[in-house]
Write a protein that binds this DNA or RNA. Structure first.
Lengths: 220, 220
DNA sequence: ACATTACCTGACCAAATGGTCAATTTCATT
DNA sequence: AATGAAATTGACCATTTGGTCAGGTAATGT
């Protein structure tokens, strides 16, 4: 886990202990918020919409999250932690570069599959210039990524893969895995489907592993 | 050119001929709008902000584009036409699959470089479920893409490239080229740069061509 | 049973925002 | 110079929206 994006701790007016109802409600609110923020963007999403989707009143929502901004940050924090926790290529199962990369790609793809809305919120935030989480990202992304880049450089030095730019490799993997969440509308339109199925994601995973691994000079 | 997204023609109250000032102002407004929409999303962008960025008053802007929605559609139409016009793999220069693909990839990347804001607006729109241009996209995307998909299938049948899913190949190319526009914030952060340079894009192009071509079984 | 705390709602407000409209100024054409 | 159209602006408005607050209800621990 990475360090928190906002300090929920220092909430003077909030109850001391997190009760059962509070935990349950916060969970439901966060899910709704993820969906609404993903569908309308930060400004387009209204507290009212999120509350309605959760099944509670606006004021009640504001009782749990004292402002739209705080709620938004909480949503972002959720997805960012998931995203950054899976950032480690190093810690992936397997010994060979091929195995590690395959796991990495499939892990990233899995996030697109299981957290499409969170991914969209994150994408929106980045596209808009990361106005809310710029600092947080600066502090955490590079640090974690460096180890992975070094690993890839080592693979290159050892002649295990072709000479390529590690950074662009990661950009490519991130983009081509996240696209199945962020651009699902477009993909569904092309594939003529209402929803991407388990098989679609498997197929995408197979494709990406095949092409990327072979593309950087690995046997499969 | 693809058919228009909205009919600017049927504007009863608008002047008959497009005067010099009108053309110039519309151009400047569209540019500003692209930037503001890219930075704030549809709802977050305000007519006031766009007007200020253009250097005119809000009411004056509304004289040229009678509503925020119309302006937004005009921006989208611009970028979509650019995007869809470059969609043809078939019409790319060169005879060999390798040559055609290389041009295709570099063309797409060029759009990211020259129209980053348009790309971002488009991305935002798709991420949010394409609420404004869903129909337009349904009508134009698949039709144009089909020819490209058929071509790739032919390459596979002829044994020129590996057996892969053509659709996922395009998803990958689109994602990994557009990411240099849409996620430029993140990329700049990782590369520790204020702005992506010509060299960065060249490097990205080289990388993508190398990995994708080799990845689908083409010699380079 | 009682008090304290958590939870929830109705009424309300100030600011922001998309858009209108009448009036005025600028411009091009004759 | 006159004239009609184009361009621009000031004043204004209705709606939306994030957020407040006082007061009421349900839980919970003692």
């Amino acid at each position: 886990m990475t360090k928190p994006l906002n300090d929920n701790t220092a909430e003077p007016s909030k109850p001391r202990r997190r009760s059962k109802t509070r935990i349950a409600h916060e969970e439901k609110i966060l899910n709704s918020a993820e969906f609404i923020f993903a569908s309308y963007g930060y400004t387009g999403a209204t507290v009212e919409k999120i509350a309605k989707h959760t099944g509670i009143s606006k004021q009640n929502l504001l009782y749990y999250f004292s402002s739209k901004d705080k709620l938004y940050r909480a949503v972002l924090e959720n997805i960012l932690n998931i995203w950054l926790d899976k950032l480690n290529l190093l810690n992936q199962e397997g010994d060979s570069p091929a195995e590690k990369l395959k796991h990495y790609i499939r892990d990233k793809l899995k996030i697109s599959q299981t957290h499409p809305n969170g991914s969209k919120v994150f994408a929106n935030e980045i596209i808009n210039g990361a106005p809310h989480i710029g600092d947080y990202l600066s502090n955490n992304l590079n640090k974690k990524l460096q180890a992975d880049v070094d690993l890839v450089k080592q693979w290159i030095a050892d002649g295990k893969i072709d000479v390529i730019d590690p950074y662009h490799l990661f950009f490519m993997i991130w983009a081509s895995t996240q696209t199945y969440a962020d651009f699902s509308t477009q993909i569904q339109l092309v594939l003529n489907k209402d929803k991407l199925t388990e098989q679609d994601f498997d197929k995408a995973g197979d494709f990406l592993c095949q092409v990327i691994l072979k593309g950087i000079g690995l046997k499969i």
